[in-house]
Nucleic acid binder design. Structure first.
Lengths: 199, 199
DNA sequence: GTCTATAGCCGGATAGAC
DNA sequence: GTCTATCCGGCTATAGAC
C-alpha cells in the first residue's frame, strides 16, 4: 500500500521519471518537473543538489528491481526450453508494462556516459545476462553465448521499440503489439534456431 | 569527387549531421553547429528558416540513399538463403559504416513525431521492408512476415547499438563488434530458425 | 552570404523570507 | 520544506551593415 502523501522526494522522482524517459535530460527543464509535481522549481533544489543528480536518481529508481524480476524466472526448474520460453515471456511483459524503463534503457544506450553504463550493467544486467549466457550454453553450445544473449534481448526489445514506426510499415497489425504474441514469435524463432535438428 | 569548397548549405548539413545524431535536437544549439562550420550562428538562418528545418534536412540527408543500398542486394538472383545472407551482411555493413544513420534512427524511434516517422517509413523503409517480407514468406511461410522482418532488423540493429553496454557485460570480446562476425551469427541463428527441419 | 549586435526568452541555480 | 525574487548565462531568432 502506498501512503496517500508520500515523501516529497519520492513524489518528485515519480513525476520526473516519465518526463526524463520521454524527452531525455536536455529535453526536460527543472521548471517542467516542478510544474508536474506542483511545487516551485526552487523546492527541487532542497531535495537534489542539481539537475544531473535528479536525473541519475530518477533513472536508478526506474531500473530498481528489474534485475530480480528477470532473474526469478531464469532460476526456476524445468527444461532449458521451458526456462527460455518463461524468460522471453517475462521479459516481454516487464518491458511492456513499464515503458519508462524501456525508454530510459534506449536513451542510455544512445547517450549514456561510461559511468552510467557501468552502473546499469552492474546493477541491472550483469546477473540476468550471466544466467542467459548459461542457458544459451545448455541450449546451443555451438553458438557464442554472449552473442546469443544479445540476440535474445535484441529480438524482444526491438519488437517493443518499433511501435511508432510500425503504423506506417506494410503488414502491421494491432496484435503485433501484444506482448504474448511477441513472446510466442520470438520463442518459436529462437527454439527452432537453437536446435540443430528437430522433427 | 567532392568539390574542395562545397556549397555552404551542404557544408552546414555535413557538420550538423554528426552533432544532431549524437546529442539529439535539444542537445545541440545553433551556436554549436555554427562553431563547427566556422561561421556565425546568424549565417545559418540565411540557409534554413529555423532550427527544426535544419534538423529535418540533416536527418533526411543522413537517410538518403539508404533504401537503395538495402534494396539492391535483396533483388539480386540466387536462392532465398543466399539473398537472406546477402541482405544481413549488407545491412550490418551499412549500419556499421554510418554510425550517424544508426544514431538518427534510434533517436527517431524514441522521439520522432508522427510526421517524421511517416516520412522515414515511406522514404526509407517501406520498399526494403516489403522485399524482406516477401523473402520471409519464401523462407518461412508459417511465420508472420511482418514480425519476421522486424526480428531480422532487430537482431542486426541491437548487436550494433549495444556497443557501450557491451564493455561491462560478461563475455564481451572485441570481435563481437565486427560486422562480419555479427552478420554470420545472425544469419546462422535465422536460417536454422527458419527451416522447419534440416540435417 | 556573412557579419556584429541585440532583442527577448528560457535555462539552471541561489538568497533569504516564512 | 517551500515560497518569491532574482542572477546570469545561453538559447533562438532578427535587424541591418557590408
Amino acid at each position: 500500500m502506498r501512503p496517500r502523501h508520500p515523501k516529497s522526494k519520492v513524489r518528485i522522482l515519480e513525476k520526473a521519471i516519465p518526463l526524463f524517459a520521454r524527452a531525455g535530460f536536455s529535453g526536460v527543464s527543472m521548471r517542467d518537473i516542478a510544474k508536474k509535481v506542483g511545487v516551485s522549481a526552487a523546492a527541487l533544489y532542497y531535495h537534489f543538489p542539481d539537475k544531473r543528480a535528479l536525473y541519475l536518481q530518477a533513472m536508478t529508481q526506474s531500473f530498481a528491481d528489474k534485475a530480480r524480476a528477470l532473474l526469478d524466472v531464469l532460476t526456476t526448474t524445468g527444461t532449458s526450453e521451458e526456462r527460455l520460453s518463461g524468460f522471453i515471456n517475462r521479459f516481454c511483459k516487464v518491458m511492456q508494462q513499464d515503458p519508462d524503463f524501456l525508454a530510459f534503457l534506449q536513451r542510455e544506450m544512445l547517450d549514456g556516459d561510461e559511468i552510467r553504463m557501468q552502473m546499469i550493467a552492474e546493477q541491472v544486467f550483469q546477473e540476468p545476462f550471466r544466467a542467459i549466457e548459461e542457458l544459451s550454453k545448455e541450449l546451443a553450445p555451438d553458438f557464442d553465448p554472449h552473442m546469443l544473449a544479445i540476440s535474445m534481448a535484441g529480438l524482444v526489445i526491438f519488437h517493443l521499440e518499433r511501435k511508432t514506426l510500425h503504423l506506417y510499415l506494410p503488414g502491421g497489425r494491432p496484435e503485433h503489439n501484444d506482448p504474448e504474441v511477441i513472446a510466442q514469435h520470438v520463442t518459436k524463432l529462437l527454439l527452432r534456431g537453437l536446435k540443430e535438428r528437430d522433427g
